[in-house]
Design a protein around this nucleic acid. Structure first.
Lengths: 182, 182, 182, 182
DNA sequence: CATGAATGAGCCTTCATTCAT
DNA sequence: GATGAATGAAGGCTCATTCAT
């Protein structure tokens, strides 16, 4: 991956972009062929870059994860500790409503990710957000990272539901947040 | 279905049992062939009883739904209004933790069920439980059925997560319940 | 077949009747199960009377053939030699228009029939009709049984065509008949 | 289809050739698997070239139809009006004697073809041949395209008959032709 | 004998993956 | 490195035929 030819890198990125779109719409069960088509490359090219469909999924999940981690990190660094955790939570659920992949990631989509526990990468910034919120008195002391993680995954899944609307999202998350407050 | 021969009924039940197991483990995407194998039956037999894979899934989902509806009804009839809603909620999540199918049902698994809106069958008892809880002052007035439904589906999905334990379940549900209380 | 119990004979006939209907409508590729259903018996009963689907078809074809043979015989015995051949020809085509089976029979539907050459049973009365017609000067001398047979099969097939109407039938057969006249 | 790779075109043609053979022998109900086997190709390859069995059949029928249309056109353009219609008729029946598919085409084999009415493509040249023949006084005025079409289909079916020989063909067609003459 | 459930080979179709070009 | 054709293992489903009841 270090010494990629220019066109190879270009292709790799086009494939990733296409895959993100396709999997966001159709879920992880979408066909690799459609990814190739949307990327405007041949199927073989996809498999050259990602020897397995799982590899492709893992790459996407990893990128997604990285983005979430970084967003969480930013909020942890700069935001108001009292609201940052909930703001992040909301952002993730919003993202999930738009892309199936987010929910799938949080539920343990990419086998590799789950096995490698890479998902735990989110734990650090999430833990920080939680701790800060607790120190600021915005979240009860007895709420642990584990529950937050579970609730995040759960809410992201719920965002995929049929009648999901921004309004329903507000009301649902408000219940969860209220349950976290002292 | 009323006057089935003894061996036919036996097989029908074996198939349903096998299907419940298989789908509980592998989800609705498990193969009909595996169901047949686990039931100790030829593939044709499965299709004789359930002409379509969807029919088989629908049968299972319907049974599941009926069980949930009846449990909710019982709690609505006899239980303490203050706790019945939460008790039911907990039971569903517990069931989901044991069988993938519950979560899939709540998310809109069986095409027939979703289309027919049969899932709405759960709305009635659930609505009753909610109303009673609110009348008893155990749940805030502004919590609506829609949110409860969403949270139920969400929590059931979460129960499928990797590190899910009874203890985590308690802590997670407690947050949701607390968010519902006045 | 000699010492059949009363109910057995009754069933045998019901099956034959049903099969005639079903195959007439859907052709020889109709399913045995539908025959059983229409006969109001269980599938096993069909197979007890006709160990093979082909046996059932053969039975029907044989009955059909017998009917045709007898009709031809009657016409040969009583009718006006000048028109009897053409009258028979027309009757067969009319029958074919109403029942797929006639055409299939004439084309060699039932394997057994074709192999056993039972179809040749029609040759005798048909030959008589032809000879009489020729003796009466209604058909050219150089027309042989073989051609008549072929034309009969052909016209019967044609009767199954999409746009077939009585009018078209008249016009088409008139051409064939004209070709046969001196 | 224009810029197919060499091996792909080779396979496409092998498949078509094999299909033509197989369907010619066994009729349209022959299995795709056998086509693949005879073509020396995996089953997936057949479906890559023809996404559906019907597509494959349609391709064959279309090619067949095109061949017939072009032959008719040639005869209409160059041949002796007095004999061209009969010559074409004979050629079609000859082809049918060799390949089941011709008869099936004329009878309305390929779903797509029948629905799309593509078969009517044959009507134009056939109509021309008929008109020319009538103008040349070789065919009676009251013979219409419809009858010719029906007789063509009928004779093609007949060509599939068991005892069909070139000699029988001549005698049979001669009767039909004679019936058409003034 | 009748019943109808069970069987299982066979069909069409999809899709991840490989490999010749 | 890219291409896209070929592969073949499943998967869902049908139906003639068998056999326990």
């Amino acid at each position: 991956m270090a010494q990629l030819r220019a066109d190879a890198r270009r292709n790799r990125e086009r494939i990733l972009a296409a895959a993100e779109e396709v999997f966001a719409e159709r879920g992880a069960s979408a066909s690799t062929e459609e990814v190739a088509a949307r990327a405007g490359v041949a199927i073989g090219t996809v498999f050259r870059h990602f020897p397995t469909k799982d590899d492709l999924l893992a790459a996407i999940f990893k990128a997604l994860l990285a983005r979430l981690v970084s967003e969480a990190g930013e909020l942890a660094g700069s935001g108001d500790p009292k609201t940052a955790l909930f703001a992040f939570f909301t952002r993730v659920v919003e993202a999930a409503a738009a892309r199936r992949t987010v929910a799938e990631l949080l539920t343990g989509g990419g086998a590799d990710l789950r096995l490698g526990g890479a998902l735990r990468a989110l734990d650090e910034p999430l833990g920080t957000l939680l701790r800060r919120a607790q120190e600021a008195g915005a979240v009860r002391e007895d709420v642990r990272l584990e529950e937050v993680r579970a609730l995040l995954a759960a809410a992201s899944q719920a965002a995929l539901l049929a009648g999901w609307t921004p309004e329903l999202q507000d009301r649902t998350l408000e219940i969860i947040f209220r349950g976290c407050r002292p």
